[in-house]
Nucleic acid binder design. Structure first.
Lengths: 186, 186
DNA sequence: AAAATATGTCAATAGTGCTGACATAAATGG
DNA sequence: CCATTTATGTCAGCACTATTGACATATTTT
């Protein structure tokens, strides 16, 4: 029931065809390779902009998630990025020193350093997201209606089942967060 | 005509609504973030296996493309991976030293070192591709018919137009190459 | 024979991740 | 109030993957 499509067992090639060791299913080469090339170009646009600022992909990821989740706790950011605080440290310090991110003490818990983008940080984050959105929008326009939903379902399915729900909730939550900001409702 | 879906210009919020600086289109947050998480888990499975062998992602990419394109020239591999020969050097040397890849002199041009996987190399490459295929097959099974084609079109569209045709040709060519090998036609 | 090509290698550097150890401030639980 | 835990930061060192620049070797092309 879960073995449709690509991993289907190879059809026997003739009557009583002997399969010595079992050739197993042929890998899904096309999507494996397309994911590689697609992701490379997808992150390539931001890379160019970031390089001019002396930043790399790590800076992009931090800036992106802080922009999307204003007031994010450091611990939560570490959790999303799945890196150590030492790795985050260097990158975050640069973003703070150069005025793209600020830290604010937590209201309830003064140990927390809640992360926020500055106007410059938001501008940069939006510029980078804009580049990626332009690329995506180009594809979706070609694919026609249903393309967006199909892509979303494919990509969401590729996430570990263990984390999928959490990621989807985070995306939905960030969407609400940002639309409040746009409305000035915050 | 290319501005359907996500990047559509925001609808005016009321009669004669003034848009001060132009909020521009809202980025396509969901696909941007899903691509990040999906790709991370997609490469995560192989990462674990590779780590036990003392290899990293760079080794995976080299092994993958050599397995898919037997007799690949070093120069072509550099071109596909878009890295320098110095970067390739170390990684390739390790794969050769540990018996996963061999080099053969070109028949016509003896300067060339054509790359081939050994049986061990093929086994490893197929194991890694198998992990990724299992993940992909799980999604495709959920998506139903058309899912594979939709994913392929989305991902292919995400590749720079400049390189898309070349990538698709490479994939098609490698498919022929490998099926010849399976048939013993080579 | 000279020039171009395919490949390899040495050295230095950058970006991003890791582990381990330790420090500080604040919250929390007896 | 004090001990512990929590949230965060920081120093030091290491690994992997990428870069640039320079140079070497073998082979093909002109």
């Amino acid at each position: 029931m879960a073995d449709i499509s690509v991993t289907a067992i190879p059809k026997p090639r003739g009557p009583a065809a002997i399969e010595p060791i079992a050739p197993i299913a042929e890998p899904c080469w096309d999507l494996i390779e397309l994911l590689f090339f697609a992701y490379r170009d997808f992150v390539g646009d931001p890379d160019e902009v970031l390089a001019k600022l002396g930043f790399g992909r790590a800076h992009h990821r931090v800036l992106h998630f802080v922009n999307r989740n204003p007031g994010l706790k450091v611990a939560d950011l570490l959790d999303v990025l799945r890196i150590t605080k030492q790795s985050l440290g260097r990158v975050l310090k640069q973003l703070i020193d150069q005025g793209y991110i600020v830290q604010r003490e937590g209201d309830n818990d003064r140990r927390q350093r809640l992360l926020h983008v500055t106007p410059a940080g938001e501008a940069l984050a939006m510029q980078l997201a804009g580049l990626q959105t332009t690329r995506i929008a180009g594809v979706l326009a070609e694919l026609g209606p249903g393309g967006h939903e199909a892509a979303r379902r494919f990509l969401a399915g590729m996430i570990d089942g263990e984390h999928r729900e959490r990621v989807l909730r985070m995306i939905a939550h960030a969407d609400r967060s940002r639309s409040r900001r746009r409305d000035g409702t915050a």
